[in-house]
Amino acid sequence: MEKIILDCDPGHDDAVAMLLAYANPNIDLLGVTTVAGNQTIEKVTHNALAVAEILNMYNVPIFKGSPQPLVREIEVSEEIHGESGLEGAELPIPSQDIQEKHAVDFIIETVMANEPNTITLVPTGSLTNIALAVKKEPKIIERVKEIVLMGGGFNTGNWSPVAEFNIAVDPEAAHIVFNQEWELTMVGLDLTHQALATDDVFENINNMGTKTSSFFVDLLKFFQKAYKENQDFVSPPVHDPCTIAYLIDPTIVTTKKAPIDIELNGSLTVGMTVVDFRQPIPEDCNTHVAVKLDHSKFWDLIYDAIKIIG
C-alpha cells in the first residue's frame, strides 16, 4: 500500500484525485494539504473540505498551506475553475474543521516520523509547499520515497506556449523541487491531455445514479464547458488523478527517465520544464517523465472509486 500526502488546490481535477486517493484500497491517504493555485488559499481549502464531505472522508486530516508563491504575485485559474475554484456542482457545508497545523509542518513531521522511503508526496498544484518543506527541513529529501507530481510538459504549455500552469505560477518553487536528489516523476500535459472525459465517460458515471456520481458529473460538465471555451477541447483533460493512477498501477502510465530542469530567466519561456531526451541518460538522473496513458484502465479506476464511495 502506498502511503501518500496529496498536496492540492481543488480544483475540479484535484477533486477527482481526492476521490481516487481516498477510495482506492491500494492508497493510504495520510493527509490532504492545500496550496494557492486554481483559486486563493481560502477558496481551495474550503473546496477540499467540501469534497471530503461528499466522499465521507472524515478520517483524513486537511491542512491549509501557502497563500502565495515564493516570490511572485499570486495567479489563479478562474477561467477554467470558476470564481469558487469548483464551479458546476452544489458544494455541501463542511462538517469538519481545518487542522491548526500548517501544511508545510505536517509534511515535514509526517515524513520525519515515518520510516525512510515510505512516504510519497503527490503535489497536484503549485510546488510552493514542497519547496518550503525542503528549505525548512532538508532532511526530508533523503527520507521521501518519491515525488509524483502533476505539472509541466515537454511538448506544450497551457499557461504560456511552453509552460504549464502549476509550474508557471511558482517556477522558483518548481526549480527547488526538481533539483533535489529524490526520485521524481513528472506527470505533465503530454500525459494528462490523454486523460479525456469523453462522452462515454460522462455516460458511464451518470448511469451509476448515486449522489457521488451526480456530483462528479456536474463538476465535469462545467470543466468541459470551460475547456471548450478557453482551450478548444471537445472533451476536458482530467489531469490530477493521473498521478494517483500511476501509484496504484504503474502499467497505466508509461514513463521515461530523462533529466528535467525549470527555466527561470527566459522572457518567453519562464516556467518551462526542459526535458532532455538526448542519449545517453546521465547515471545520476533521478527524474522521470510520463509519456503514455492507458485510457480505459485509468477511467476504470475512477469508476471503481465512485462505486466504492456510493
Rank of each mutant, 00 (worst) to 15 (best):
Glu83Phe: 05
Ala168Gly: 03
Tyr58Val: 05
Asp249Cys: 04
Ile176Asn: 07
Asp9Tyr: 10
Asn207Lys: 10
Thr269Tyr: 15
Glu229Val: 08
Met1Thr: 14
Asp14Thr: 11
Lys292Asp: 13
Met1Asp: 12
Asn230His: 08
Gly271His: 07
Ile141Ala: 10
Leu30Met: 13
Ser66Gln: 09
Glu263Lys: 01
Leu127Ser: 09
Pro250Tyr: 05
Leu86Asn: 03
Thr192His: 05
Thr192Lys: 01
Tyr303Pro: 06
Ile119Phe: 08
Glu283Asp: 15
Leu20Asn: 09
Gln194Ser: 04
Val122Phe: 03
Lys256Trp: 04
Asp7Gly: 02
Met150Gln: 13
Ile306Val: 12
Thr185Val: 14
Thr45Ile: 08
Asn26Ser: 14
Gln224His: 00
Trp182Asn: 09
Ala163Tyr: 09
Gln194Val: 06
Ala163Glu: 05
Ala52Trp: 00
Thr287Arg: 07
Thr192Phe: 05
Gln99Ile: 01
Asp190Ala: 08
Gly271Tyr: 10
Ala173Asp: 15
Thr269Pro: 09
Thr255Ala: 08
Asp200Asn: 15
Glu164Cys: 04
Ile281Asn: 04
Glu283Arg: 01
Tyr246Leu: 05
Lys3Met: 06
Leu301Val: 05
Met208Gln: 09
Ser214Arg: 15
Gly31Trp: 01
Asp284Pro: 07
Val60Arg: 02
Met18Lys: 01
Val275Ala: 11
Lys136Glu: 15
Leu301Pro: 02
His239Leu: 03
Ile308Met: 04
Leu189Thr: 06
Met1Asn: 10
Ala36Ile: 02
Val177Asp: 08
Ile108Pro: 09
Val289Asp: 08
Lys225Gly: 08
Met272Gln: 14
Ile108Met: 09
Leu219Glu: 14
Ala174Glu: 09
Arg278Asp: 15
Asp249Glu: 11
Thr269Asn: 14
Lys256Cys: 03
His12Met: 12
Ser126Arg: 15
Glu142Leu: 06
Lys225Trp: 11
His12Ser: 14
Ala23Gln: 07
Val270Met: 15
Phe277Lys: 01
Lys307Gln: 14
Gly271Glu: 11
Gln68Tyr: 12
Ile167Phe: 09
Pro92Tyr: 03
Ile54Asp: 08
Leu149Arg: 08
Ser235Met: 05
Ser235Pro: 04
Asn117Trp: 07
Val44Asn: 02
Gly152Asn: 06
Val148Leu: 03
Ala258Trp: 06
Asn38Cys: 10
Gln224Trp: 02
Gly37Ser: 02
Thr287Gly: 03
Ile262Pro: 03
Glu283Met: 09
Arg72His: 11
Arg278Tyr: 11
Ile27Lys: 05
Leu55Ile: 07
Pro250Trp: 06
Asp14Pro: 01
Ile98Pro: 08
Lys135Arg: 14
Asn158Glu: 14
Ala305Trp: 02
Phe233Arg: 00
Leu301His: 07
Ala17Leu: 06
Val71Lys: 12
Ser267Glu: 15
Phe233Glu: 11
Ser213Ile: 02
Phe223Trp: 04
Ser214Cys: 09
Val60Ser: 10
Ala23Glu: 06
Ala133Ser: 07
Leu149Cys: 14
